[in-house]
């Protein structure tokens, strides 16, 4: 990805920043200016929680240019709690441990390096949801 494109999409990649439609109230990710549900303008920013479940998954054995050093790596379609689906890499999990329906959460990780002098691109990846003890009063 070019430096400008990486910079332009930083809120999405670091914070899963989408939109919520003022008219039909659906959550939207990635942001797209026109709501895909009701075709009204969509401009109000809305940060998604980053929690969701695996809708489908695979492993890339034959990577495109720029990702050679990381293959094989698992990728998935994640259905987010708020409704939108996102395409992303999985992390902190062995490919044979992934299951459809598995709860996952977003983390920020290095996506790619573009040589010694190029930018290092960070993005969202998803890992199995950590079991946290419930807070007690």
């Amino acid at each position: 990805m070019s430096v400008a494109r990486t910079w332009r999409t930083r809120k999405q990649r670091y914070g899963l920043m989408g939109e919520r439609c003022d008219y039909c109230h659906n959550a939207i990710f990635p942001p797209r200016d026109v709501c895909p549900h009701c075709a009204e303008p969509a401009q109000r920013e809305f940060a998604l929680s980053g929690r969701g479940a695996v809708y489908s998954y695979t492993t890339v054995f034959d990577p495109p240019t720029g990702f050679e050093a990381y293959a094989p790596y698992p990728v998935a379609l994640i259905k987010l709690e708020e409704g939108p689906m996102v395409t992303a890499q999985l992390t902190d999990v062995a490919p044979d441990q992934v299951r459809i329906g598995m709860p996952v959460e977003m983390v920020t990780r290095k996506l790619s390096e573009q040589g010694d002098e190029g930018v290092i691109v960070y993005s969202y990846k998803f890992r199995p949801q950590l079991q946290r003890p419930a807070l007690t009063a």
Binding site: S56, T58, V60, D62, G66, V75, T87, Q89, I100, S112
Partner: peptide
């Protein structure tokens, strides 16, 4: 390019995601 390919997802992988879900 910005939200599928940018994550290192190939065209074959996209079809694999569909096939896995179909089988499921």
């Amino acid at each position: 390019q910005e939200y599928e390919a940018a994550e290192g997802v190939t065209f074959v992988a996209l079809n694999a995601l569909l096939m896995r879900r179909y089988m499921h």
